[in-house]
Design a protein around this nucleic acid. Structure first.
Lengths: 199, 199
DNA sequence: CAATCTCTTGAATGATCGTTCAAATCTTGC
DNA sequence: GCAAGATTTGAACGATCATTCAAGAGATTG
């Protein structure tokens, strides 16, 4: 199997789905950008949906290497790792003039009746992201109150990332992102203060 | 001007854009569902984008009547009004089997390079929602710490609503929505505890 | 070298999309 | 009741869409 062509297609589709969404990206867009002809694409993929599946698998399989490793390089404090992760999305927003938000979130809201494979892959991508943040919260140990539901808090942080991106992108105003993150910081600070007072 | 036909088109488009999104809704869908012929639609609207503009104006102009009034009927406590508002979205999710989330949020993430009119109307819809919640926070008076940035907190609550819907819909699991709201409740409780201790 | 499998080429297909328009019908003002 | 404008009808158009397929090129294997 000539994986080079397949990978070129997937990589191109990653970029286009991220930048323009699924429906606004045509097969023609993928073909012309990747310099591949339609027969080759359909040799590897039964249809457009299967390209999307491959894209979501690419995000799923690369979350450690492409996202966490990059965001956490040189950041040891587990709480600061969370804000470093959020800051990565912030930088993407700013440097792309609000084009690149969260690819999973955008696809999740764009696709209203997705193929079960697609829906499940979207959910898995969210779940893996949450697990990464949950691990940071675990690593924070007793800096958080002992009874803290760390999974729920990690889901909450995903929620804030997605909502902050949505608002900032819509209003093209990065301070909306920043204010959301600041409220989260206040919340975590409160939790850490409570943990200290308990001890 | 025969507003009856125009309103029928807008109302149908509201439902279809909400249920299926903008791009997945074709003009044909709107025509067949609303029993209007293409010539009539194009008599009132220059194109599909202008139908979207009218839909977003409908949401903007009806937020008080269609959203706030309904959610806040019989709820006087301003903090509980916030949770009642969130519960409205929860009920829509559950009763529609996760089809109906937040129409503005879905459109905001689906449209990657929107017409300036569209982008501005999306932003205005968000802003009006935030203002409604901000008013609740204002009405809560000194139950919140005096230094609280109420606008930022209201934006934060919009963020949570959008993110909670996104996650719950993607995983088709309403407990994801509930856990997010519970963390928010914990946050507001913390703020109210701090306000009491200060006094 | 021959045979078989993998991959590429690119024109063609049918479906659906948003949109147009001329003719017909209805409404309004005089 | 007539003229002018507003609205409706519905067939038609060109563009674009995802997809197909026959033919050929290239790689692999016996």
């Amino acid at each position: 199997m000539n994986t080079a062509t397949r990978e070129k297609i997937v990589q191109t589709a990653v970029e286009l789905f991220w930048a323009k969404g699924y429906q606004s990206t045509s097969i023609s867009d993928i073909l012309s950008r990747s310099q591949v002809h339609s027969g080759s694409l359909y040799h590897f993929f039964p249809g457009k949906q299967d390209v999307l599946v491959a894209v979501l698998e690419w995000f799923r399989d690369g979350i450690e290497e492409n996202l966490f490793a990059h965001a956490w390089a040189g950041v040891d404090d587990p709480i600061e790792r969370i804000f470093s992760l959020l800051n990565g999305y912030r930088m993407h927003l700013v440097s792309s003039d609000f084009m690149y938000g969260c690819p999973i979130g955008s696809l999740a809201l764009e696709l209203h009746e997705p193929d079960p494979r697609v829906r499940e892959l979207l959910a898995v991508n969210f779940s893996n992201w949450v697990s990464g943040v949950e691990k940071c919260l675990d690593d924070a140990g007793d800096r958080l109150p002992s009874g803290t539901d760390r999974r729920a808090l990690a889901e909450f942080i995903l929620t804030i990332m997605e909502g902050a991106i949505m608002q900032a992108r819509t209003s093209r105003d990065i301070t909306l992102f920043d204010r959301n993150v600041e409220v989260l910081r206040g919340h975590l600070d409160n939790l850490m203060t409570i943990a200290r007072e308990k001890a």
